[in-house]
Amino acid sequence: MATAVMTSLDPKSRAAARGMSDIAIRNLFIVPTIVFLIVFNVFPLIYSLGYSFTDFRASTNSPANFVGLQNYRALLNDPFIWNNFAITAKYVIVSVVGQVLVGFGTAMLLNRTIPFKGLLTTLLLLPMMLSMAVVGLFWKLLYDPSFGIINYALGLGTFEWLANPRMALYAVAITDIWMWSPFVMLLSLAGLSAVPKHLYEAAAIDRAGPFYTFFRITLPLVAPILMIAIIFRTMEAFKTFDLAYVLTSQPTTELISIRLYKMAFQEWQTGMSCAFAYIVLLMVLAITNIYVKYLNKVKER
């Protein structure tokens, strides 16, 4: 019955009475979405590809001149841009690894019968429901060397979390880990609760140790869903803007999206920033592709 509803129209329905076919109904729902996507996503994507080969500046009225690959050449030869990429890579690794460790760990702790489990899980999810900019502003206060609560609680005196060029990126990553570990935890929890209980019982009968059980049963079965969490978090971490922008302005925390924002909306180098955005897009696509390949492999097992 369910498939019948999906493939053909109920002859008694009003739509059928008006003489609409299944295909008409389908188009009615799909065409607006497709048009919307083309107008707001595909068209700008292609249009900006065109701009990336010009010296166009949106702030002036002078016409755009075709400059070929000059923008790409200039960007890839700019040591500051490479530095931005290196910073972003470091940030993505630190923050995603941190989130997986903390998130998965919390999920393991929660995956048992404890009192108030539902309430506890809900409370742990709160950080990711806050706005990024608000989290940034709060943590800026928490990190403050003169009156921040973190230094007070850890007894660090006037340790400069955000003013120290070497520490600042880690401080941003810590904030990101705090905010997004619950997301990894939630997905991991879903994966963990789907692991059949009889596997653990069998392992217990075979006297398998906790490590063996974890690496041979828990991890492989949770891996696909954990990979999805990692893909999402990697893409998000790659695009991080607000958190780092609000927290600190160190050159050592200038992620690619911040540099891109400055290039596009402070310097109004529209052509150059389109080229930059394309380079970033290609990189995100490449990384996501690797993950997806790996995800498929994990699923096959």
Partner: peptide
């Protein structure tokens, strides 16, 4: 640069 040495802690943004 020298003045920066005499600023309060965390005076970087």
């Amino acid at each position: 640069k020298e003045l920066y040495k005499f600023t309060p802690p965390g005076w970087a943004k």
